[in-house]
Protein backbone atom coordinates (compact mmCIF):
# COMPACT_ATOMS: atom_id res chain seq x y z
CA UNK A 1 0.00 0.00 0.00
CA UNK A 2 2.73 2.37 1.01
CA UNK A 3 4.75 1.70 -2.11
CA UNK A 4 1.85 2.05 -4.53
CA UNK A 5 0.73 5.36 -3.03
CA UNK A 6 4.32 6.58 -3.15
CA UNK A 7 4.56 5.62 -6.82
CA UNK A 8 1.21 7.28 -7.53
CA UNK A 9 2.37 10.46 -5.84
CA UNK A 10 5.59 10.44 -7.86
CA UNK A 11 3.71 9.96 -11.12
CA UNK A 12 1.38 12.81 -10.25
CA UNK A 13 4.24 15.17 -9.46
CA UNK A 14 6.07 14.15 -12.61
CA UNK A 15 2.99 14.73 -14.79
CA UNK A 16 2.41 18.15 -13.23
CA UNK A 17 6.01 19.18 -13.81
CA UNK A 18 5.88 17.99 -17.43
CA UNK A 19 2.63 19.82 -18.13
CA UNK A 20 3.91 23.06 -16.62
CA UNK A 21 7.18 22.77 -18.55
CA UNK A 22 5.42 22.23 -21.86
CA UNK A 23 3.06 25.13 -21.24
CA UNK A 24 5.83 27.52 -20.27
CA UNK A 25 7.93 26.54 -23.27
CA UNK A 26 4.94 26.96 -25.58
CA UNK A 27 3.63 30.23 -24.21
CA UNK A 28 6.51 32.14 -22.68
CA UNK A 29 10.04 31.04 -23.42
CA UNK A 30 12.14 28.02 -24.23
CA UNK A 31 15.76 27.11 -24.82
CA UNK A 32 16.80 25.52 -28.09
CA UNK A 33 20.17 24.41 -29.49
CA UNK A 34 21.50 25.98 -32.68
CA UNK A 35 22.73 23.53 -35.28
CA UNK A 36 24.93 24.46 -38.17
CA UNK A 37 26.81 27.59 -39.10
CA UNK A 38 24.27 29.51 -41.13
CA UNK A 39 24.00 32.25 -38.49
CA UNK A 40 27.73 32.54 -37.81
CA UNK A 41 29.26 34.81 -36.50
CA UNK A 42 26.22 35.77 -34.39
CA UNK A 43 25.47 32.19 -33.36
CA UNK A 44 27.82 29.21 -33.56
CA UNK A 45 30.88 31.24 -34.64
CA UNK A 46 33.12 28.18 -34.69
CA UNK A 47 31.00 25.51 -36.29
CA UNK A 48 32.48 23.04 -38.69
CA UNK A 49 35.23 21.83 -36.39
CA UNK A 50 35.32 18.31 -34.99
CA UNK A 51 33.95 19.43 -31.64
CA UNK A 52 31.14 21.35 -33.36
CA UNK A 53 28.24 19.58 -31.69
CA UNK A 54 29.71 19.94 -28.25
CA UNK A 55 30.20 23.68 -28.48
CA UNK A 56 26.84 24.46 -30.08
CA UNK A 57 25.13 27.56 -28.79
CA UNK A 58 21.90 27.29 -26.83
CA UNK A 59 19.59 30.25 -27.23
CA UNK A 60 16.64 31.60 -25.30
CA UNK A 61 13.53 31.92 -27.48
CA UNK A 62 10.71 34.13 -26.29
CA UNK A 63 7.16 33.60 -27.50
CA UNK A 64 5.41 36.81 -26.48
CA UNK A 65 5.84 38.19 -29.98
CA UNK A 66 3.41 35.52 -31.25
CA UNK A 67 0.45 37.36 -29.71
CA UNK A 68 0.85 40.39 -31.91
CA UNK A 69 3.15 39.24 -34.74
CA UNK A 70 4.96 42.56 -34.53
CA UNK A 71 8.56 42.18 -35.63
CA UNK A 72 11.21 44.62 -36.64
CA UNK A 73 14.03 44.44 -39.12
CA UNK A 74 17.04 42.62 -37.72
CA UNK A 75 15.15 40.34 -35.30
CA UNK A 76 16.48 36.80 -35.14
CA UNK A 77 13.52 34.41 -35.33
CA UNK A 78 12.83 30.69 -35.09
CA UNK A 79 10.43 29.35 -37.69
CA UNK A 80 9.21 26.15 -39.31
CA UNK A 81 10.85 25.53 -42.64
CA UNK A 82 8.36 26.05 -45.47
CA UNK A 83 9.90 23.11 -47.30
CA UNK A 84 9.62 20.65 -44.42
CA UNK A 85 7.29 21.24 -41.48
CA UNK A 86 9.33 19.06 -39.13
CA UNK A 87 12.40 21.25 -39.45
CA UNK A 88 12.97 24.47 -37.53
CA UNK A 89 15.33 27.15 -38.76
CA UNK A 90 16.87 30.21 -37.12
CA UNK A 91 17.38 33.24 -39.34
CA UNK A 92 17.34 37.02 -39.28
CA UNK A 93 14.41 39.08 -40.61
CA UNK A 94 15.61 41.36 -43.38
CA UNK A 95 12.40 42.78 -44.75
CA UNK A 96 8.83 43.04 -43.49
CA UNK A 97 5.50 43.19 -45.39
CA UNK A 98 5.32 46.00 -47.90
CA UNK A 99 9.06 46.64 -48.04
CA UNK A 100 11.19 46.17 -51.10
CA UNK A 101 13.98 43.67 -50.88
CA UNK A 102 16.90 43.18 -53.21
CA UNK A 103 17.48 39.58 -54.10
CA UNK A 104 21.20 39.43 -54.82
CA UNK A 105 20.92 35.92 -56.08
CA UNK A 106 18.67 36.71 -59.02
CA UNK A 107 19.58 40.41 -59.19
CA UNK A 108 15.94 41.16 -58.80
CA UNK A 109 13.95 43.41 -56.50
CA UNK A 110 10.65 42.16 -55.11
CA UNK A 111 8.03 43.58 -52.81
CA UNK A 112 7.21 41.44 -49.77
CA UNK A 113 3.50 40.45 -49.88
CA UNK A 114 1.29 41.21 -46.83
CA UNK A 115 1.72 38.76 -43.97
CA UNK A 116 5.13 37.59 -45.18
CA UNK A 117 8.73 38.42 -44.35
CA UNK A 118 12.14 37.91 -45.91
CA UNK A 119 14.64 35.98 -43.79
CA UNK A 120 18.36 35.52 -44.34
CA UNK A 121 21.20 33.89 -42.44
CA UNK A 122 24.15 35.98 -41.33
CA UNK A 123 26.51 33.64 -43.10
CA UNK A 124 25.37 34.14 -46.66
CA UNK A 125 27.58 31.40 -48.06
CA UNK A 126 26.01 28.45 -46.25
CA UNK A 127 22.48 29.38 -45.43
CA UNK A 128 19.17 27.96 -46.54
CA UNK A 129 16.91 31.00 -46.42
CA UNK A 130 14.56 33.23 -48.40
CA UNK A 131 17.07 33.38 -51.24
CA UNK A 132 16.11 29.75 -51.79
CA UNK A 133 12.42 29.58 -50.91
CA UNK A 134 11.24 33.18 -51.19
CA UNK A 135 9.36 35.19 -48.56
CA UNK A 136 7.84 33.12 -45.74
CA UNK A 137 4.44 33.65 -44.07
CA UNK A 138 4.67 35.21 -40.61
CA UNK A 139 2.46 32.39 -39.34
CA UNK A 140 5.40 29.99 -39.56
CA UNK A 141 7.37 31.94 -36.95
CA UNK A 142 7.61 30.19 -33.60
CA UNK A 143 9.46 32.78 -31.51
CA UNK A 144 12.24 35.31 -31.47
CA UNK A 145 15.76 34.70 -30.20
CA UNK A 146 16.86 37.11 -27.47
CA UNK A 147 19.84 35.67 -25.60
CA UNK A 148 22.58 33.10 -25.88
CA UNK A 149 22.52 31.05 -22.66
CA UNK A 150 25.20 28.43 -23.28
CA UNK A 151 28.26 28.03 -23.42
CA UNK A 152 29.11 30.28 -20.43
CA UNK A 153 31.68 32.46 -22.14
CA UNK A 154 29.18 33.45 -24.83
CA UNK A 155 26.25 34.36 -22.54
CA UNK A 156 24.73 37.63 -23.67
CA UNK A 157 22.02 39.29 -25.67
CA UNK A 158 21.72 38.70 -29.41
CA UNK A 159 21.96 42.13 -30.96
CA UNK A 160 19.61 43.35 -33.63
CA UNK A 161 21.52 44.36 -36.68
CA UNK A 162 20.54 45.00 -40.21
CA UNK A 163 22.80 43.09 -42.54
CA UNK A 164 24.86 45.03 -45.05
CA UNK A 165 22.36 45.83 -47.74
CA UNK A 166 24.23 48.19 -49.99
CA UNK A 167 27.10 48.03 -52.39
CA UNK A 168 29.33 45.58 -50.55
CA UNK A 169 26.90 42.68 -50.64
CA UNK A 170 25.97 43.29 -54.23
CA UNK A 171 29.60 43.29 -55.30
CA UNK A 172 30.32 39.93 -53.68
Amino acid sequence: MGLSSFLWNCTKKFATAAVITVTVSDRFASVVPVRGGSMSPTLNPKSGSQMGDFFDDYVLVEKFCLGTYKFSNGDVVVFRSPMNHKETLIKRIVALPGEWCGDHYNHDVIQIPPGHCWVEGDNADSSMDSRLFGPIPLGLIRGSVTHVVWPPHRIGAVEKKTPPQGLSSVLE
Binding site: Y69, P113, P114, G115, H116, P137, L138, G139, I141
Partner: peptide
Protein backbone atom coordinates in the same frame (compact mmCIF):
# COMPACT_ATOMS: atom_id res chain seq x y z
CA UNK B 1 -5.03 26.99 -41.50
CA UNK B 2 -3.36 30.20 -40.40
CA UNK B 3 -3.97 32.60 -43.23
CA UNK B 4 -0.68 33.33 -45.03
CA UNK B 5 -1.74 36.92 -45.55
CA UNK B 6 -2.61 37.62 -41.92
CA UNK B 7 -1.13 35.34 -39.25
CA UNK B 8 -3.77 36.31 -36.71
Amino acid sequence: VKSPLNPK
